[in-house]
Design a protein around this nucleic acid. Structure first.
Lengths: 333, 333
DNA sequence: TTTAGCAATCAAAACAAACGAGTGCCAACA
DNA sequence: TGTTGGCACTCGTTTGTTTTGATTGCTAAA
């Protein structure tokens, strides 16, 4: 594919800019009036025809204007669009979310998802990766006679939603012992070490075998899967690009977390990624996914993104994600 | 308002039965063909006119059939409808949810919400009340140097999502002491006692004043508000009764938990409650709320319900809620 | 290479006629 | 007195036709 001439790029950008706000096919006259008054509509027409030939545009029917194709959006998002600077107010709103102390990283990413969705008016997704998780401590907290809460503290999060049954007659002395043992075994270890730990169980663990196994399973189950939070699924209904049925599928797909990690994680370490019209992700047919990475100590630990109609305000989304991710970098440090 | 004659009730029931499945105005002919073949359509017509006069029916326009009014639905749900027995399969699906051990009541009601929504294909809401909550124990678990997780165990739930900052230099001895003190103060107390506790703080608490205040605040904040879980908001999109915009409002309202407790809690201790077209709850205009109570030791501790279009399959909803609530009664004991 | 002009295309809007679903009313009947 | 068949009337829906207008591609001239 040959490079596009400067004017072709201008015209293509004009068409997409216009289509993003009007949602209706853009005519040569529209382009002339609103973007390129110094060129005649006939000229623009022939350029449009050429762009169509190249696959960037299409016509719903012969007497209609042009509509951008997915590859046009791709080019637009990566090269053509202008990022729209955030308003003072938006920046303020974002800052506000993070300026009181947050203990758990989960809380932080929830806030991030919320504010992204509110400001962009699209559905947001924030993903938190799990590599390099190091266990800092494991606690067994006795709740009732035979039930304990397992708390696992890592360098990134606090796991505190898992209960286990205690062996009969363990008593608080037993729990203390178990706690000590568990900590000796798990502290400082990361996910890759789990196998080794299992292999190295010695005599002294024998009494607590059941407890140990439960804890191990909890760590395996919960630390393995990364966390994903989403917000504002219903916002898709503001855009007529999807009909009722596909909007329903959209909301369902996102709430059930289907194929989300695939879409977002897939862009590992890319500063700013745009995926458009991914067919593979059923339920998100007519959609675009834009995501940006955020880091801890310079290393990507997650991505924040937006899922919306292909006809999306990429300029605004770009700035918002950028700003929020910068914010996350700062807060997480 | 005078009692309706037997035939009027039959006809009204027929109209609603039909409208619930077809969603289009019901004619005298429809009623004759499908429900009362032994009466002429003319007779049915005059009955329909009478029912309209009484406010149970209305006509979209003069050459259309009849549509039930909200008071018709009310009568229908409370007196006319037949409850539809659950299929073996449905019962099995419900039972399945509850047959492995669940530690936290929150988990139980989440399961309940999920299965209700799946089987009815409406949005479900399950509410858990907070009266008579008795604190069984309070634990402070040190996580990092200066942060602790606060765990509050009550007779109904385990609160474990709150962190507090620890005063500098407290150390694990200090934490043990604080733990002991907190337990002495809170164990066995219920919400109404909180004021007394605060009043009774003595000398010995002085060192832990900041910790105590934080814990108190956590208990106040979290035990006060009852918990509500919802599921399947997107299902409203399966029903054409609401347009896009009001469907959006519906989903948003429910996800943000607005006016839900009002709608459901309001029916305190009523076995089976139906609310229809409550205008006060903005966002849920064209909707009906059906809820049933579940109990612990014979006392209502929550309600499980369904929110959907006014034109709802009340018969099925009735049986599902009934069965799930029975199940809850059993599981919670 | 650009542009004005113009015929061609075709969706959408506007209009018109026909249809038919359903009613209310009335006169006859059990 | 309640029920019924018959019938005229209403009015939304469907179907078909025409008009309109937006927009294009092409062509010939600048």
């Amino acid at each position: 594919m040959t490079e596009l001439s400067k004017r072709k790029r201008e015209i293509l950008k004009a068409v997409i800019d216009d289509f993003i706000v009007t949602a209706s096919p853009v005519s040569s006259q529209d382009v002339k009036d609103k973007y390129l008054p110094d060129v005649s509509s006939a000229t623009i027409r022939s350029e449009l025809a050429a762009l169509e030939e190249l696959g960037y545009l299409s016509q719903p029917h012969v007497s209609a204007g042009r509509v951008p194709s997915n590859i046009a959006y791709k080019l637009y998002a990566s090269e053509l669009m202008n990022s729209k600077p955030l308003t003072k107010n938006d920046m303020h709103l974002i800052k506000e979310q993070f300026d009181h102390r947050l203990f758990d990283i989960e809380e932080v990413i929830k806030k991030a998802a919320k504010i992204i969705s509110e400001i962009t008016n699209y559905t947001s997704v924030v993903l938190l990766k799990d590599d390099d998780i190091v266990i800092r401590s494991v606690k067994l907290v006795e709740l009732l006679e035979d039930t304990a809460l397992v708390i696992v503290v890592t360098n990134k999060q606090v796991l505190k939603d898992s209960f286990i049954a205690l062996p009969k007659g363990l008593g608080s002395v037993g729990i203390d012992a178990a706690n000590e043992l568990l900590n000796a075994m798990f502290t400082g270890k990361n996910l890759n070490d789990l196998g080794d730990i299992e292999a190295a169980i010695g005599e002294e663990t024998e009494n607590f075998r059941a407890v140990f196994d439960s804890v191990m399973e909890i760590i395996r189950m919960n630390l393995k899967s990364e966390s994903i939070v989403t917000e504002g699924e219903y916002r898709i209904l503001d855009y007529p690009d999807n009909d009722r049925d596909s909007a329903k599928k959209f909301i369902k797909t996102i709430q059930k977390r289907e194929s989300l990690n695939y879409l977002i994680e897939d862009s590992n370490d890319i500063e700013f990624s745009v995926k458009i019209g991914k067919e593979e992700a059923s339920g998100l047919e007519n959609c675009a996914v834009v995501s940006a990475k955020y880091t801890l100590n310079g290393k990507e630990i997650g991505r924040a993104g937006v899922i919306g109609p292909v006809r999306m305000d990429y300029g605004k989304v770009y700035s918002v994600l950028n700003y929020v991710c910068k914010m996350l970098d700062k807060v997480l440090k």
